[in-house]
């Protein structure tokens, strides 16, 4: 299993644990500002990140020289996904409680990072999805 896949899957597992802990906090009445962070840690941080890792590992080879496409692109994707997710998880509850310019623009950066992660994943994986 390549290093990028191991890193993606282990980070996905950390997101799963964080989301489940946040779920307990929500059950104890934490404010709804945390609910989007809970959902996105589960759906993007856990399930989608796990898929990204497995796709990078197991999908058909890109070429003999570069079996998994561009590894550098994969690492940029990893950084964008997790920075974007972390930023939103920290800032979204602040913005919900007390909107301000700093947290507002941090959410814009987070949105750009998360979308960029998706674009990089598709760019790196598209050609590996092909008929045998």
């Amino acid at each position: 299993m390549p290093l990028l896949t191991r890193t993606l899957i282990k980070t996905a597992m950390v997101c799963l644990i964080l989301a489940l802990i946040l779920g307990i906090a929500l059950a104890f009445g934490a404010t709804n500002g945390f609910f989007p962070a809970y959902i996105h840690l589960l759906v993007f941080g856990w399930i989608t990140q796990l898929i990204f890792g497995v796709v990078f590992w197991m999908f058909p080879k890109y070429s003999l020289e570069k079996p998994r496409g561009s590894e550098a692109l994969g690492w940029w994707m990893y950084a964008a996904l997790n920075l974007g997710l972390l930023l939103r998880a920290l800032v979204e509850p602040l913005q919900a409680a007390r909107p301000n310019a700093f947290s507002g623009w941090a959410l814009v950066v987070s949105a750009a990072l998360q979308f960029t992660a998706g674009v990089l994943f598709v760019l790196n994986s598209w050609k590996r999805v092909r008929e045998k």
Partner: peptide, 21 residues
């Protein structure tokens, strides 16, 4: 994969709206 991009794009616009109103 195309839906992933479309879905993330919609999500990004919503998150920007949350930040900047």
């Amino acid at each position: 994969m195309l839906y992933l991009l479309l879905g993330l794009f919609c999500g990004a616009l919503i998150l920007i709206e949350k930040g900047l109103f």
